[in-house]
């Protein structure tokens, strides 16, 4: 338990550094120098020195933003707790708690967006909602299957693929950054944020990437059959590697459109899920 807490705290502290590394790698692909690796931390700290500006829509907006961050921290903590003994050995309660928290994060983000008196934010919120409907059910099913430890190598591989795709979607990277879509919606869901509130949202955004990378790392490590401290260590080490892969994928692609994204995700995830059901049914 102590190691899990330590790993969670370490990863939460390192997430902005991973994000800084992402910016550096993206810059290298762009042939730019890019900001320092600690830039995301600098940004967050700077934002918290600014005055608090509560957007039109009420003070509870702040509460929703803070709750979203808390839910993300909790879901990260559960993931690291599960990591300490391997994904295939998670209890049903832990698995359901993680799924519920993931849905709560997405729901709070949507509530935050649509509660604003700003059409860009509202449009962004509905895009977030569409993505959530496309990816979350597949993420939940694949996670529960892997957490149960049931199934063959083939079915676990397919479930891992479903989990990897759906967790990439919730990370909010290109091509699925459509809720924010800076050139289209002028930052969409984040348009009303400034100062410490934007700081909170920035941390949430980074933690979403952390959860996304940790999920895939956890699923991949489960194939090795590690447990205890070695499993936890492997997940902590594999997370930035998955993050790196996510970075490269997002840099070489363009932004999708909400209708195209949903169509693509449904086709891909439905195909993978069908293969998963088939492999279970045939006992492969």
């Amino acid at each position: 338990m102590l190691y899990s807490v330590a790993a969670a705290v370490l990863s939460l502290a390192l997430a902005p550094v991973y994000d800084g590394l992402e910016r550096k790698i993206r810059a290298a692909i762009h042939t730019r120098i890019g900001p320092p690796i600690l830039q995301t931390w600098y940004d967050i700290l700077k934002l918290f020195t600014k005055e608090i500006v509560v957007p039109v829509g009420g003070a509870w907006y702040t509460l929703v933003t803070a709750l979203e961050l808390l839910a993300l921290i909790a879901s990260s903590a559960i993931l690291y707790h599960i990591s300490s003994y391997g994904l295939g050995h998670a209890t049903l309660l832990e698995s359901v708690a993680f799924i519920v928290l993931t849905s709560v994060v997405a729901t709070l983000a949507i509530v935050r967006a649509v509660s604003q008196n700003n059409v860009f934010s509202v449009v962004g919120g509905f895009r977030e909602f569409s993505l959530m409907l496309s990816a979350e059910p597949f993420l939940a099913v694949s996670f529960l299957l892997l957490a149960s430890g049931a199934g063959s190598l083939a079915s676990k591989s397919i479930a891992t693929a479903v989990l990897a795709v759906s967790s990439y979607v919730i990370s909010g990277r290109v091509p699925y950054d459509i809720a924010e879509a800076e050139p289209e919606l002028a930052s969409g869901v984040n348009i009303e944020l400034a100062g410490p509130l934007l700081g909170l949202a920035t941390i949430s955004s980074v933690l979403k990437k952390l959860v996304s990378a940790t999920l895939t790392a956890l699923a991949l490590i489960s194939f090795v059959g590690l447990s205890g401290l070695s499993s936890l260590t492997a997940v902590v080490i594999a997370t930035p590697v998955v993050w790196l892969v996510h970075t490269v994928v997002s840099t070489i692609l363009g932004r999708s459109r909400v209708d195209l994204a949903i169509r693509f995700l449904y086709v891909l995830l439905f195909f993978l899920s069908s293969a998963l059901v088939l492999s279970f049914g045939l006992g492969l």
């Binding site: 762009h30 042939t31 950054d177 050139p183 289209e184 363009g254």
Partner: peptide, 16 residues
């Protein structure tokens, strides 16, 4: 155009 389509690598290289 590349930037508008979220392909910032294209944007950066076109300007380079």
């Amino acid at each position: 155009a590349a930037h508008l389509l979220g392909y910032d690598a294209g944007f950066m290289h076109a300007w380079r």
